[in-house]
């Protein structure tokens, strides 16, 4: 006997066990599809770009060159960094870019998949997973740059580098949380994708990417409340010095991220049928 599916108007929240079970089932079911979509998107992305994977290197290098020149000309002053400044900027930019990819990816992916969403009932998680895979792939390419960078500037590497991926994953998950939260509304209202770039620009300004973590002043307080900061800083510190300056806030943010991710995932599942309904096929 084949399993029976029942569609009713009732909220799935009234059947939490069923909801969690379907979430788990769809997550498993979407692995292969996510892989396919990822392969499709990555091949399409690089096939129509003459510079190919160089696009993964160009933004961090451009940022590093720009800010290093500006700093050398004393346009602005930054405190002491624990590794050479160009390497500092480049590494941070690569991490920040990965966070931005994870945050904007789901919104863009869901908008692009609109015609598909309006017609086929496939596990929606696949779109998000495919995007996560793409974020991982792009970071993998940036890793080549980072390794080259570390060798060139002779950046000391601590044994804790093997723990750095854990912190990086938390950083990506925080980005994904933001992305999943915005994705359903982003399909309905274009305002989301329009404002996303601006918000990310402002957020970058509040994140210790081109400067070390500030300790004093109103700006310091503002940065202290930025959840990206501890994750990004911890990832960098694990990969380089091995001395953690923000361990506590790292664990607080990580815990909240994991909890928040589960909640936004539930929200995403519940919202998607309503979103599809308002999108003409």
């Amino acid at each position: 006997m084949l399993p029976e599916l029942i569609y009713t108007p009732d909220s799935l929240l009234r059947r939490p066990r069923f909801l969690l079970w379907t979430m788990w089932r769809d997550l498993l079911a979407s692995r292969e599809l996510a892989w396919r979509l990822m392969v499709r998107d990555i091949s399409a992305q690089y096939r129509q770009a003459a510079l190919g994977i160089a696009w993964a290197f160009i933004p961090p290098i451009a940022m590093a060159v720009g800010f290093t020149l500006a700093k050398d000309a004393n346009v602005f002053t930054v405190g002491e960094t624990d590794i050479p400044y160009p390497a500092f900027v480049m590494f941070n930019t690569a991490l920040w870019q990965t966070f931005v990819d994870a945050a904007t990816g789901p919104v863009q992916a869901v908008i692009i998949a609109k015609p598909m969403l309006a017609r086929v009932n496939f596990p929606r998680e696949a779109i998000i997973l495919a995007k996560l895979g793409e974020v991982g792939f792009n970071f993998g390419i940036k890793l080549i740059l980072i390794v080259g960078l570390f060798l060139f500037f002779r950046v000391p590497v601590s044994w804790t580098v093997i723990l750095a991926p854990v912190a990086l994953i938390h950083l990506v998950l925080l980005g994904t949380l933001v992305g999943i939260l915005l994705a359903p509304i982003g399909v309905l209202y274009q305002d989301v994708s329009k404002s996303l770039n601006m918000i990310m620009g402002f957020w970058l300004f509040l994140t210790p990417v081109i400067y070390p973590v500030p300790t004093e002043g109103a700006f310091g307080t503002l940065v202290a409340f930025n959840p990206v900061a501890p994750l990004l800083v911890t990832t960098r510190e694990l990969a380089t010095t091995g001395v953690l300056t923000e361990a506590v806030s790292f664990w607080v943010v990580s815990g909240l991220t994991l909890l928040g991710l589960l909640l936004t995932w539930i929200g995403f599942r519940i919202a998607m049928p309503y979103v599809v309904e308002r999108v003409t096929s």
Binding site: L2, P3, E4, L5, Y7, T8, P9, P115, L117, E277
Partner: peptide, 24 residues
């Protein structure tokens, strides 16, 4: 794809929508 506002739908078996030729 979308939820009904009243009533319910029961479906048994793999359902292929040919609404979507060449989806994706």
């Amino acid at each position: 794809l979308i939820k009904p506002d009243t009533g319910r739908v029961r479906v048994r078996g793999r359902l292929a929508p040919l609404i979507a030729l060449g989806a994706g």
